[in-house]
């Protein structure tokens, strides 16, 4: 799928991976985020070689260092919005989880929707819950896969603003996968891939 792709991402930077459908964007994101393992090559995250880790160890890396935002939100349907946000913190065994999660929901404007189930929320609201969950474990890197792909223009704008605001506030590294060039332009660096190959690595005006 991917062929000879080499790049590194600076801590705290914002980056976009763009390319046409089938170019390998999602595969690249899966490898970088430790959701998948590569058949060859090395993926290092926070100086940890993901290739040498077991599936369970990679799960722990994801819980410790990574936040996720997905195109189709990927909230647990049987958990309330608040519980969805609490899960990464509960896994880390942290304290004061409820208050911190409520605070995060407040930041995304859903303090009063904490006890609603995902099916009771609109798409935009679900993505905002997903954002609150992604930032709940104070990740060092946030991977977002087409975060506005399932949202209308108006909602997309609000969600994008939230992503960048929260990212800036937490100083998190952001890796966005999108084919929305307008969204990609909001990051500091755009990596273009096509047919599984990295064809361009450009800095944007935000760099």
């Amino acid at each position: 799928m991917l062929d000879n792709i080499n790049f590194s991402v600076a801590a705290g930077s914002t980056n976009a991976i763009v390319g046409p459908s089938g170019s390998g964007k999602t595969t690249l994101l899966g490898l970088c985020a430790g959701l998948d393992s590569s058949s060859s090559g090395i993926v290092e995250l926070n100086n940890i070689n993901l290739g040498k880790l077991s599936e369970d160890e990679r799960a722990q890396v994801r819980n410790q260092y990574i936040g996720f935002i997905f195109q189709n939100f990927q909230l647990l349907p049987t958990l309330t919005a608040l519980e969805n946000v609490m899960v990464p913190l509960e896994l880390r065994g942290e304290k004061n989880i409820r208050a911190r999660s409520l605070d995060l929901l407040d930041k995304v404007g859903l303090a009063d929707r904490g006890h609603h189930y995902p099916a009771q929320l609109s798409g935009g609201e679900q993505q905002r819950v997903s954002l609150a969950r992604a930032f709940s474990n104070a990740p060092q890197i946030l991977f977002a896969d087409e975060p506005t792909g399932n949202l209308d223009a108006e909602t997309s704008e609000k969600v994008v603003k939230l992503i960048f605001d929260l990212n800036k506030e937490a100083g998190t590294t952001l890796v966005l996968v999108t084919h929305d060039l307008e969204l990609a332009a909001k990051t500091q660096r755009i990596l273009r891939i096509k047919g599984g190959k990295l064809i361009a690595d450009d800095k944007t005006v935000n760099a």
Binding site: L35, E55, D56, A59, N63, F68, L75, L76, V87, L91
Partner: peptide
Amino acid sequence: IASIAIMRCLGVKAS
């Protein structure tokens, strides 16, 4: 499967 994948993604171990 979808829920289990989300949990695994968030850091839940296989066991």
